[in-house]
Simulated assay, not measured.
Amino acid sequence: MGAKSGLALKALQWFVRGIQFLSCAVALALFSYFLAVASRHNYNIPTWSKAVEGIAGIGVLYTLAGLLLLCCVAGHPFASGIALILDVAFIGAFIYVAQANRGGASSCRGTVSTIFGRHSASDRLGSGLPSYHQICQMHSAVLAVSIIAIVFFLISAFLEIALVRHRRKERRFGPSPANGYTSGYAKRGFFSRFRRSKGSEEEAINPNTLPEHTQPDQLRPSYNTESTAAGPQYNKYGESGFQHDGQTAYPERTSYPAAGQQQHYGDGTYTR
């Protein structure tokens, strides 16, 4: 289960990085075309267009590196921490890109605002060049992909957090009987979180401890050792006694003679 969820997270992050790469590539391609046309025909190049070009170019390099390294360092705390910071930074950067291309939000008819200034949509940049209407539509495309990039950079930031947490769980719960001695952590039901006290008691039991021996109800009497337990009616000296350390041991007196009668013992005569 753990391996499958980790693979699913990596596949989802790879898809997200792919969308980011395509969005950055579209913005880079269109603004590279704008700057090439402006440089060839001596148009004034605004500073914000160079900033958009730089953001799109760095975004292409970053997302391409993310696609290539995802299978190697996915979920690593250091790599994911850097990726999380860069994702948040690119969210702010593409907000700036969307704001710079806000002219593409119009219908691209009448007077349009483009990188080459405000002109009528029916005018053309020059012979063999696109019209301002087409330039406005290119700005609309950059605006659209910048919004898509913002959303997917936000998603990738949350996925980086999920990958780090999954990696920590994988390292915390190694192979065990609960997960069939495979990688990942054991399956847990929805209501298992409400049985934490019972689970903690079960975890406290050492699985390597041998079971306790059963205790018999009745213990066997023995004549060989004094440490062996015996029943309440058992006389350890036997019926007639035996020699121990040079002295003769006799059984305990359990009855006494009647009045006026004598009873002989090995240690003397008892008269009542």
Rank of each mutant, 00 (worst) to 15 (best):
G57E: 08
A89W: 02
G260D: 01
S192N: 15
T269I: 09
K10W: 01
P232A: 12
G81S: 15
R165F: 07
Y96S: 04
A98Y: 04
R102H: 13
N235W: 10
P77Y: 08
A29F: 09
A186H: 05
A3C: 05
Q262W: 04
G246W: 06
S106Q: 03
R17Y: 12
N44W: 14
L68E: 07
W48P: 11
R172L: 06
F194L: 10
G57K: 07
L129K: 08
D123Q: 13
S200E: 11
I148Q: 07
Y132S: 01
F116N: 06
G241M: 07
I85V: 14
I55W: 11
E252S: 12
F152K: 01
R118E: 12
G180L: 03
S5C: 00
L219C: 03
F173C: 12
F152N: 09
A121T: 05
H244E: 10
L67N: 02
L125F: 13
S240N: 14
G128E: 10
T271E: 11
R220N: 08
S240W: 14
F90A: 02
E203L: 11
G6V: 03
P216A: 08
A162S: 15
H244M: 01
S255F: 13
A144Q: 03
A25K: 12
A27L: 05
A56H: 08
K187S: 09
P232R: 15
G54T: 15
L30I: 15
Q243H: 09
Y250V: 14
L143E: 04
L159T: 00
S32K: 15
H244N: 11
E170R: 05
G126E: 07
T271S: 11
S255T: 14
H213N: 08
T182Y: 09
G6K: 10
V26R: 05
M138I: 05
G18D: 03
F90S: 05
P77T: 05
N208L: 12
R220S: 11
P130V: 09
H133E: 13
N101H: 03
K4Q: 09
Q263E: 11
A98C: 03
E212K: 15
F191Y: 15
S197V: 14
R193A: 06
A8I: 12
C108R: 02
T209F: 04
V164M: 15
F242C: 11
H166C: 03
T269Y: 02
E170Q: 10
Y265R: 04
R124P: 00
A162G: 05
G241E: 04
E212Q: 09
Y181H: 14
S107V: 06
E212T: 10
N179W: 00
I91T: 06
V151P: 04
G103D: 12
L61F: 12
A149Q: 09
S197D: 14
H41R: 13
L35H: 05
A51W: 03
D123M: 07
A157I: 11
H119E: 12
G266S: 13
